[in-house]
């Protein structure tokens, strides 16, 4: 191979690597620009608020997904866990909004812990375990709350649609979750462990890392974060609807994580990229809807984005 072609390859690798790390910000900028020019009413405080509120649950779910993917796993059950938590909010509302929300979060964590136990201890592939949880979780939610149930609770309504300092509560909560996950990843032992487990599980084991405990915790956290998103959605809709809450959100979350620069093979996690990825997913949906394309188009667009993102990440993971 000539020096020139080696250089060309190095350049291509570098470009690919740059694209993997920062492409998501370019994507967000591009879609914002498109909307500023072509979408009437896009540049308004009210629209920004709507977009932020709708992006919030995706961001929260994607954060948990990023942690799971960083360990080399995947969690397909996040949407079902959202539905479960929504069901428990309506079931326990009689005990007051706070209790019902706490129960919902606990249920999410337990569902995640079940995933984590089977993955970490029994060693079953995450994709199978969480696929089963995806089916069983939504099934259970439908058994508990067979159809859409309206929720009339002033506190929950306030949480779902109110604001403080001009920023909706749900956005505050999402921001808090981002800060929490950033702290976990950047500052804690747990954050170091999860990328090490994803990067080389055998090396992590030999280095005395508690691999199983780390995996269990990661899936539990992912379940709890999905439950947070479930509560957000329930509060915003003022209804618990196990049929539709969180439906197909796993696709958006996985896409957000991968577009944000976290490789599907694990060993690396990018929190800011994930947040940007989630915002990109929301803007993609909003744009297509605003331009009167049917929702099925947005799903196809999402799948196209995820394939493109995995393609970009491909070569680096292999070398």
């Amino acid at each position: 191979m000539s020096a020139a072609s080696v250089m060309a390859r190095v350049d291509r690798d570098r470009a690919r690597s740059w694209l993997q790390d920062y492409g998501v910000y370019v994507g967000v900028a591009a879609i914002v620009l498109f909307n500023v020019v072509f979408t009437p009413g896009f540049v308004s405080l009210e629209n920004f608020r709507v977009q932020a509120v709708q992006a919030a649950p995706i961001v929260v779910v994607a954060l948990g997904m990023a942690l799971v993917i960083a360990t080399g796993g995947i969690d397909l059950s996040v949407g079902a866990v959202m539905a479960l938590s929504a069901a428990f909010v309506s079931l326990y509302l009689g005990y007051g909004p706070l209790v019902s929300v706490l129960v919902a979060l606990l249920v999410g964590a337990v569902a995640g812990a079940v995933n984590g136990t089977i993955v970490a201890v029994a060693g079953v592939q995450a994709i199978i375990v969480t696929l089963a949880m995806m089916i069983a979780g939504r099934g259970l939610a439908l058994v508990l709350v067979p159809q859409l149930e309206g929720i009339r609770n002033p506190a929950l309504r306030e949480f779902g649609s109110g604001s403080v300092a001009g920023v909706p509560y749900v956005v505050w909560v999402a921001a808090l979750m981002v800060a929490l996950v950033l702290f976990l990843v950047r500052r804690t032992l747990f954050g170091r462990r999860l990328v090490a487990v994803g990067g080389n599980r055998r090396a992590a084991e030999l280095s005395g890392l508690p691999v199983r405990r780390t995996l269990l915790l990661v899936y539990t956290l992912c379940g709890a974060l999905a439950a947070v998103a479930g509560v957000m959605t329930t509060a915003r809709l003022q209804a618990s609807d196990p049929n539709s809450v969180g439906l197909l959100i796993e696709l958006s979350a996985i896409t957000a994580v991968v577009v944000g620069g976290t490789p599907l093979s694990g060993g690396r996690v990018r929190v800011a990229g994930t947040v940007a990825g989630a915002i990109l997913m929301q803007l993609l949906v909003a744009t297509l809807i605003k331009h009167n394309l049917p929702p099925s188009w947005t799903q196809m667009a999402q799948t196209a984005v995820i394939i493109a993102a995995v393609y970009v990440a491909r070569e680096r993971g292999r070398s």
Binding site: V195, A196, N200, A203, L209, G267
Partner: peptide, 19 residues
């Protein structure tokens, strides 16, 4: 396969067990 964690830096690799 049993030693280095490829995605991580030299720093993180050195500190892995002592963390």
């Amino acid at each position: 396969h049993e030693g280095i964690v490829p995605g991580l830096s030299v720093r993180e690799n050195i500190a892995l067990a002592a963390m």
